[in-house]
């Protein structure tokens, strides 16, 4: 197990480095300097600005200084918000996005696996068709459609819940969390259904029943552990998807989180901000993929042999 954790973690390092390198040079390759669209400034001011953002150095030099700064947790100043650093902006948005992501993930895992298990217990009956049809709707209904529809129905027509904001008024966290979580709940429902169906036909479950265990023990204790394995493996990718989903949800509900910052930075051509956020989000995603793989290997020892020769 430790060997797996060690080797799997080592794999993550080149990925993170690749992300930083590609992002850095992509952003540098962007046509037009960050100040070229602004009104004309005197050459001295231009030079001073470029020196401040290290744009006067050769690219490789810039890259190396960026890396050294990054290791020290310094992502440089924002181009768009003068006087504010990128890490400051990121850590301002992060708690909000993290909270939103957590609620969404909880909704997705709890509702999704519950629906999937229920469906798998009586396959090809009404108990299977109803949750699975709802899951199909969830998969085909993107968040940028579901969100506005929920706002329209519950926010405007019924007037039950606030239509935007985060933590400003009572209940304004409900709609964004549901909007973000719904699609993943649908995926998880499908995953856990097929996982459970596969486990239910295994011999060890027949043995468990044969020795006279009550049905709920058979399911809760023996079937769930194997049946929910695909869900655990899915959590890493789901986290990545949740982050990009938060771009849309935060835009719809006007939530000042990281996703909204990212989209804003993209529109403002705030290059240091784009670079910083991309590196930060990517690292986060790589780390979560790593954690999800470790969790899966912990539950399923067979996965650990990936690194054995």
């Amino acid at each position: 197990m430790w060997r797996f954790i060690g080797l799997r973690s080592l794999q993550a390092i080149p990925v993170i480095l690749a992300v930083i390198t590609v992002t850095f040079f992509l952003v540098r390759a962007a046509p037009g300097g960050p100040f070229s669209s602004e009104k004309a400034v005197s050459p001295q001011v231009q030079a001073a600005l470029e020196a401040q953002y290290r744009l006067d150095q050769p690219p490789l030099q810039q890259y190396i200084s960026y890396l050294t700064d990054l290791v020290q947790g310094n992502m440089g100043p924002s181009f768009y918000y003068p006087g504010r650093s990128v890490d400051e902006l990121i850590f301002q948005g992060l708690p909000i996005t993290a909270e939103l992501g957590l609620y969404a993930l909880l909704i997705a895992v709890i509702i999704g696996s519950f629906a999937g298990v229920i469906a798998a217990l009586k396959p090809n009956t009404i108990q299977d068709y109803v949750p699975m049809s709802i899951a199909m709707v969830g998969i085909c209904m993107p968040s940028f459609l579901l969100g506005p529809v929920l706002v329209l129905v519950f926010g405007i027509m019924l007037d039950w819940l606030p239509v935007s904001g985060w933590g400003n008024s009572y209940g304004d966290k409900v709609l964004p969390s549901i909007t973000l979580g719904a699609m993943y709940a649908a995926y998880i429902a499908r995953l856990s259904r097929s996982g459970m169906l596969e486990v239910m036909s295994q011999d060890y479950l027949r043995t468990a029943r044969a020795k006279g265990l009550p049905e709920y023990v058979v399911i809760l204790k023996h079937a769930l552990r194997g049946g929910l394995l695909p869900v655990i493996s899915y959590l890493g990718p789901a986290f990545a998807a949740l982050l990009s989903g938060s771009f849309v949800v935060e835009t719809i509900f006007q939530i000042p989180g990281l996703g909204r910052f990212y989209v804003q930075a993209a529109f403002n051509r705030d290059y240091t901000m784009i670079l910083g956020t991309t590196v930060f989000l990517s690292t986060l995603i790589v780390v979560f993929n790593l954690l999800s793989d470790i969790a899966a290997a912990w539950v399923n020892p067979r996965l650990r042999y990936q690194f054995k020769k």
């Binding site: 080149p14 990925v15 690749a18 992509l26 952003v27 390759a29 989209v263 993209a266 991309t278 790589v286």
Partner: peptide, 20 residues
């Protein structure tokens, strides 16, 4: 495997920003 681990949604947004 390495490419698969990259967060592509973010990269697509980046590409759209950088290259129009």
């Amino acid at each position: 495997d390495i490419l698969y681990a990259l967060p592509f949604m973010i990269f697509i947004i980046l590409l759209m920003v950088v290259f129009g």
